[in-house]
Write a protein that binds this DNA or RNA. Sequence first.
RNA 1: GUGGGUGUAGCUCAGCUGGUAGAGCGCCCGGUUGUGAUCCGGGUUGUCGCGGGUUCAAGUCCCGUCACUCAUCCCA
Length: 420
Amino acid sequence: MAGLFASPKGVAEYVPPDSERFLAVRIALSAPARRAGYGYIELPIFEDTALFVRGVGESTDVVGKEMYTFTDRGDRSLTLRPEGTASVVRAAIEHGVLQGTLPVKLWYAGPFFRAERPQQGRYRQFQQVGIEALGVNDPALDAETIALADEALRSLGLSNFRILLNCLGDAESRPGYREKLLTFLRGLDLDEATQARAEANPLRVLDDKRPQVQRQLADAPLIVDSLSDSAAQHHQQVRAYLNDLGIAFEDAPKLVRGLDYYTGTTFEVVHDGLGAQSAIGGGGSYDSLIGDLGGPDLPGIGFALGVDRTLLACDAEGIDLGAHPSCDVFLVPLGVGAKQVLVKLAAELRMAGIRVDMAFGDRGMKGAMRAADRAGARIALLVGDREISSGVATVKDLATSEQVEVSADSLVDFIQEKLR
RNA sequence: GUGGGUGUAGCUCAGCUGGUAGAGCGCCCGGUUGUGAUCCGGGUUGUCGCGGGUUCAAGUCCCGUCACUCAUCCCA
């Protein structure tokens, strides 16, 4: 039915029963981090625009053309958050949590916004689950971060994904490499936009996916060949830890990612069954972001996993996420008196932790039983004048069609036992 | 921004070279005066995306427009 309104362009909406699958994915993605000492952080959906400009980087596509920016009534420029790391770092600094034991481990989940052309797996409002570990530079922490992403995806039953790994170098190795790469890029036949990108941030040209560009990049100088001793050692240790953990990864020397704050370890998780938008997650470390946002000079590392895309990956792999029935017991009242009894019983059963729904409206017995079936209930509980006068309820097992009368006193216990 | 595809019942879709709209699923009712799923019978739903044009006649052809979608770019 065409109503008066449609959802804004490009937002991902989930209604039952699909929404149950979405929830299952979101919960699964955060579970490994919660087991690894990450605390939940609830962040604002909008922030000072300057936070993203400074944090994500002016030369990025995200800041350059994808932000939902507006002015509030106090003439402040605010932006719907396009990513989570800048907010986490801002909040960590603001609340002084970096004064405590390091690393500070935080996870978040929720919607993010980018004004792009929507397509399969790319939405203007999309959902991420992310983690950030702030304050410590340790290859073991880098490896743990990647392991948590791997574990999150595997816990859903996913297997057709690959982890791409690279190292973008530290403050010592970066400037020299940047010059070397820029010199190389200037000698190529690139379109105007790409030339401009090369001047602004030469690294970003490396992961241009267009064949005509990639062909020219075959002999490009690689970051891994220009790493400082300490950066190279760090990178080797991350790889060794991952090997110890049995986590398969592919070296991707041209993986850069589009956010300017990344330094050092960088990774991306791609799935081959999703069409063009194949990245279901990604992350890396950032040595100077915390300092750039006015905090102490500390590093951080984290990742974000896309819930929408992970759900698509589950679909692509035919994974059964367990569409749970929404109730255990469905109450069927026959008559007004019965409804009074059952409304109270519903509350009582729910207090006991049982999932209960009941027939509303006046659809009659047949309709009520049908509703019980549609609700996926295991038990239908019928009460009418007969039951009321003898102080019992009729309990019907919907799978076997067997039914028994149970006295009102022992009803809750009986049902709990039966559902066990 | 730039290209391609598609817009018909709640959902998935059919509708040949123009002749006044269909299937499956769902939903509702009945087959038991208090019993679902199964089975049987019956029924329900459409400004055929919107606007204009051609024609005796347009879901079908033409133009425009909007929406959705896929791809490019980039990212989750």
